[in-house]
Design a protein around this nucleic acid. Sequence first.
DNA 1: ATGAAAGCGCTAACAT
DNA 2: ATGTTAGCGCTTTCAT
Lengths: 352, 352
Amino acid sequence: MPATSPYTERNMEKEITIYDLAKILALSPATVSRALNDHPAINVKTKALIAEKAAELGYRSNTFASHLRTRKTNTLGVIVPRLNSNFMSTVLAGMEEVANNFGYNLLISQSLESESKEQANAKTMFNSRVDGLLVSVAYDTESIDHFAAFISRNIPVLFFDRVMEHPQCGSVVIDNEQAGYDAARHLLDEGCRRIMHVTGDLRRNVYADRMDGFKRALSEAGIEADSASILSTDLSQDAGKSIADHIDQMPAKPDGLFIANDLCAVTCMQALQEKSYTIPGDIAIVGFNNDPVSQVITPQLTTIFYPGYQMGKTAIMAILAQLNGTKPLIQDPIILRSALIIRRSSKRLGDS
Amino acid sequence: MPATSPYTERNMEKEITIYDLAKILALSPATVSRALNDHPAINVKTKALIAEKAAELGYRSNTFASHLRTRKTNTLGVIVPRLNSNFMSTVLAGMEEVANNFGYNLLISQSLESESKEQANAKTMFNSRVDGLLVSVAYDTESIDHFAAFISRNIPVLFFDRVMEHPQCGSVVIDNEQAGYDAARHLLDEGCRRIMHVTGDLRRNVYADRMDGFKRALSEAGIEADSASILSTDLSQDAGKSIADHIDQMPAKPDGLFIANDLCAVTCMQALQEKSYTIPGDIAIVGFNNDPVSQVITPQLTTIFYPGYQMGKTAIMAILAQLNGTKPLIQDPIILRSALIIRRSSKRLGDS
DNA sequence: ATGAAAGCGCTAACAT
DNA sequence: ATGTTAGCGCTTTCAT
């Protein structure tokens, strides 16, 4: 075999094109193209003929030629902080299901909680010409300038869960303020009076809002949420241990603990138990996310149910609606229902 | 200016092409293209000039035109049974990291454990012209004909975790047989004599191999692994409960239990505890995967560490090596190390 | 070191 | 209902 150009070396089987099909069937490429796209003006019998031949010869549409013409990619970009959390992978599963049903592909990348990686991801997405972009921002993201290129080109950008405010961007969230309120209120109802809240980076809406709800519940109960009762951490498992140490050193220990993440809460709970604190007797605990671990720990962890799958599905539907012009722009955030799930880790009063 | 659509007036930033760049700089498109691709024959100063202007005008390469010419997409397809398991999302996180470093994108889809969905996914991947395909097959996949199109076109297909045998396809796995052996052997060492194994669909290598290892350990110990001691389920959480019911009804109950999935094992364990069995006293339990829940359950669950992140990274490296011709074809499966992690759920003998 | 020109495969006016 | 034709923006011979 003679030396060939770099591209012919790898795939030896020739690709069938609409020209091949056209020639074989003595039709024009245009007719073939229309038939393959189910254009109404094409005779049903012709369509059938073409479809059959295409299948027989293993024709496959060249999406790049198509995209080059149509300027549509049928691909949505997704940027998430991490892929490997139970919540996020559930969101992605929901997204994938809907996107797939509507003929869209997902280009997924993770920022690893870093704004600079997020910027790089955004750039890649932009160059990949995604039709729309779904983002849950990183821990330390300050600005959203890296999405400006999308916005100025009218490529829809939709934030979910960890959202940023922008007049041109939709968002899908849960009511974190209410969830935080519910959690704190529940602890109050169980008789807790010195309640501590462990939260994440307060630049993120999810944590700031939960804290606001927490404070509102306390203030309604006439309790001052002083700064000592709020601890901002990275909500990692390590943080869970540190929190237990911290509590152990406090002169006036809390009798209630609201931690904005189940994994962190569970680690903290175990560390406290090792130090011989009883849960919920000494300290009642509420987590967040309804992660599988929350049902496995003893005692089972009271937590907030977080509709990840539905959030993923909703986000895709919303951005597709925007793409198809079904809805001009979803101004207001779409708010999904979350719910307090009461389990043993917080039940201090009778009734069990 | 000719009549245009109402939208062109405002806000539609025109896409800059290499032709625009060429015209502005009084160069040819060819030079611009070469400069942008860092071709050695181009003057350094020219390159700098072009790069600067490109940045200034917000030029972005049209990957479709590029792909149309080069027949490379820099995209790898990934088909997994489900996105939302701790193991799989960890694998994907590893894949994404490496792929990203090498300038590749990931097109991810889930088969939802169904062969027909897997076939549809494969078709989409094929039409998307992925440069390579990574697959962990569905629960019920019988044939791999749906990957034939890739193989015949020399598009690398690499299986990971749940693999199929094919002379042209590489694979990345752990030594499931050895892991199964280790698990059973450990239970034997702890004094168990009536050991039961709960497994998944035996068409899948991961389950068949673990079972083989299990049987080998038992037979070495002179114990017959009769059919009654092996239970094939879907390894779901519901299955975990059913298993507990089943055991509760057995006349001669097992004193050791090896369940090929942590989530299932944990649910089963909780159900057994509810029935007042003590773990490990009455029944010692070993799971599989080292899922976060395994460290949270009381007593903590002995399990097999499964290097998900590394598996993801390794799989991408292997397929890229094949793509770049660095390695012609990885005939033998790449086997990653797994490890038994002994925790309290299986410690029946002293030493603690 | 740079340029001219020919496509890659498809779609969509604009014909007929 | 079908055909003609002109690009979409890029890369890469082959020339200079």
